[in-house]
């Protein structure tokens, strides 16, 4: 093995190692299993049927709803003591809540947090569920890909709207902030452009609704352009320190700056002058 620094002899020696056979078998099994997992059709035949449009989305959605949502929202989405009615909330609300993992809710805290999606909540299942809830009483629909395309928005205009409408809760870069009684405005960093649009259109949890007459769809796209631009921006001044403003700056000034200088002063004076 010229140039690699590994001698042929050492490879031969390893090939004859007592554990070599075990290793080869493990590797082969791993490759086979891994390859299968990557290429195998992941889903049942029923999903395939839905994908080709053979099954009715609304009917499928209803069965998903009964299985996963009805225990709190009621069998006909009429609402119970535990959870509000979903008649008229629209497909956008369903898509937002389920695709961000907030629904189904884990427990009754002050606010349902963003979490990994439920296992059954594939994109398709979310669409079906949304179609069912949409069929109950209308409401805001899921925006098209074009409506949320950051490249088509004007970030500067979006920034002005963002500052006027969002930052009092979500912070100036969407890092999130506290609300009362344990509620909070979540950070916007993990939200997809579609979810940002839907949040504005439906006003989930503590958030107010920004409907199309308050903020037009074009303006929403501008805001999405600003939010995604700023959150992907590399901080020009070094570490962004969480981008939450002077609190972390003050912490760094004391914990890093002053501590280092105090250590330096101890070091400088540690060596005593010998008496002449």
């Amino acid at each position: 093995m010229i140039g690699t620094g590994i001698s042929v002899n050492s490879i031969t020696a390893r090939r004859r190692h007592p554990l070599a056979r075990v290793a080869v078998v493990a590797l082969a099994l791993g490759l086979l299993g891994g390859g299968y997992a990557l290429t195998a059709p992941n889903g049942s035949t029923a999903d395939a049927a839905i994908a080709s449009g053979k099954a009715d989305d609304v009917a499928q959605g209803k069965s998903l709803f009964v299985a996963h949502c009805a225990s709190c929202h009621g069998l006909n989405a009429e609402g119970t003591k535990k959870a509000p009615t979903l008649i008229g909330v629209g497909a956008a609300a369903v898509n937002f809540q389920v695709s961000s993992g907030r629904m189904p809710a884990a427990d009754a805290g002050p606010q349902a947090p963003r979490k990994p999606r439920a296992e059954w909540a594939t994109d398709q299942a979310v669409d079906q569920l949304a179609a069912y809830v949409q069929s109950l009483g209308g409401g805001p629909t899921v925006p098209s890909a074009e409506q949320v395309d950051p490249a088509k928005g004007d970030p500067a205009k979006g920034g002005e709207l963002f500052r006027a409408n969002c930052i009092q809760c979500h912070n100036f870069v969407g890092a999130g902030g506290a609300l009362t009684y344990g509620k909070y405005a979540p950070p916007l960093n993990p939200a997809t452009p579609t979810q940002i649009y839907e949040a504005m259109a439906t006003g989930p949890q503590a958030m107010p609704v920004f409907n199309d007459s308050t903020i037009t769809p074009e303006q929403k796209r501008d805001m999405i352009a600003y939010i995604t631009h700023v959150r992907s921006q590399v901080d020009p001044g070094g570490s962004g320190l969480g981008r939450i403003g002077p609190v972390t700056e003050g912490l760094v000034a004391w914990v890093v700056g002053l501590s280092l200088l105090i250590l330096a002063s101890i070091w400088i004076t540690a060596k005593k002058r010998r008496a002449a």
Binding site: A164, I167, Q168, N171, F172, A185, I244, P246, V247, G250
Partner: peptide, 11 residues
């Protein structure tokens, strides 16, 4: 008219 969450003074 605008204000941000997390508005803080220097330490």
């Amino acid at each position: 008219a605008d204000i941000s969450a997390g508005s803080q003074p220097d330490w």
